[in-house]
Amino acid sequence: MFDSPLSASAYEVLRVDRTATEDDLRRAYRLRLRQTHPDTGGDAAQFVQVQRAWELIGTPEARAAYDRGRGGASAPEGAGPAASAPDAMHWGASPRTTAPGTRQRARSYGQPGGWRRERYLDLIREWSGRGRELADPYDPALVRAAPYEIRRLLADALAEEATARIIADLGMGYTVWHDVAVASSDAKIDHIVLGPSGLYGILSEDFGGPVRVRRGEIIGDAVPGAPIAGLLQGMKAISRAGRLKFGGAIVVLPDEDVPVPIDELGKVHGMPTAVVARSSLSTVLRRGVTGARSIGGTEQFATRDRLNQIVRFA
């Protein structure tokens, strides 16, 4: 809940300034507990947030680590930023590494989150001042202070990278193309995944808060436009270009932002569609979206070859 550039900081959750004294912090924590406790009419989700915020900044040691941008549990020794605990708040680019062991990973093309990271770096430098040298463009304090649209780019890049790691662990029976450009458009498809359960277009998003679905579309306070409709339009363009038939569409969101882990919407504009919590993505890709056509044998090889011929990256 604190791992997104769009999330409120621990200080914001407790409603104190970053310079608050330990006594002020403790008083604010007790007040927020009373305000959010479900037994007194508060919101359970906010109550949990308050408790987690206190864990992050409730002691001098934890607070110092949080203020350095390394709040929460530490990463294993030798691991990169991607291996850090969810609340580590280090949003630097994850190194592309091969998992230890002999297990084959999914075949992957393109750079997940690459387009949005490049755009983020351009805009954060422009916003902070041209000619100014940024020691760390992912410094949490800098990111938190940036305008929403800049933070949104980084949040979406992180979402795409998280999805890519999950797909990679599915094994050699799967192939994925990241950041696929849509011809004659500025749009892109975050991921196209081919496996035994079918061919899927996937949108990885982080809207920074809870969302819901109404009439086959995602809605929420911070949801721009029509994400599902945009994904389906991009898939349609790729389908025409490659004379391919997608089996389904999947939207992947942070676990805490969806009411149920797997929400199968049925057919949206004729395409089987599901909104999925990130932790449930591997389950959905292995079993397939209801109504999606499975692909096996020579057809899977032919589909992969065809995609390799037509895919261009954003």
Rank of each mutant, 00 (worst) to 15 (best):
A157V: 13
V193Q: 00
D179N: 14
V193T: 00
R132M: 04
A145T: 03
V143Y: 03
I202H: 02
G171H: 00
A164R: 02
I150A: 14
D190R: 03
A135C: 01
E126V: 15
R152Q: 10
A141I: 05
A135K: 06
A141L: 06
R151W: 11
V176P: 00
V143H: 04
P140W: 00
L158Q: 03
L199E: 13
A162G: 06
G131A: 04
E149S: 15
G173C: 12
A141Q: 09
S184A: 13
Y138C: 01
Y138K: 04
L142A: 03
A141P: 03
T175C: 04
P147I: 09
G131F: 01
D169N: 04
E149T: 12
A159T: 03
E205D: 15
I150Q: 11
D139H: 13
P137G: 05
A183E: 14
E133S: 07
D136A: 04
E160G: 08
D186M: 14
R130N: 09
Y148W: 15
I167G: 08
L142F: 05
L199Y: 08
M172N: 15
E149D: 10
I166E: 09
W177L: 06
G173T: 15
H178K: 10
S128T: 15
A181G: 14
A159Q: 03
A135W: 04
A145V: 00
R151D: 14
L153P: 06
L203N: 15
K188H: 15
L154K: 01
F207V: 13
S197D: 02
A181W: 08
W127S: 10
L142R: 05
L154C: 01
R165Y: 07
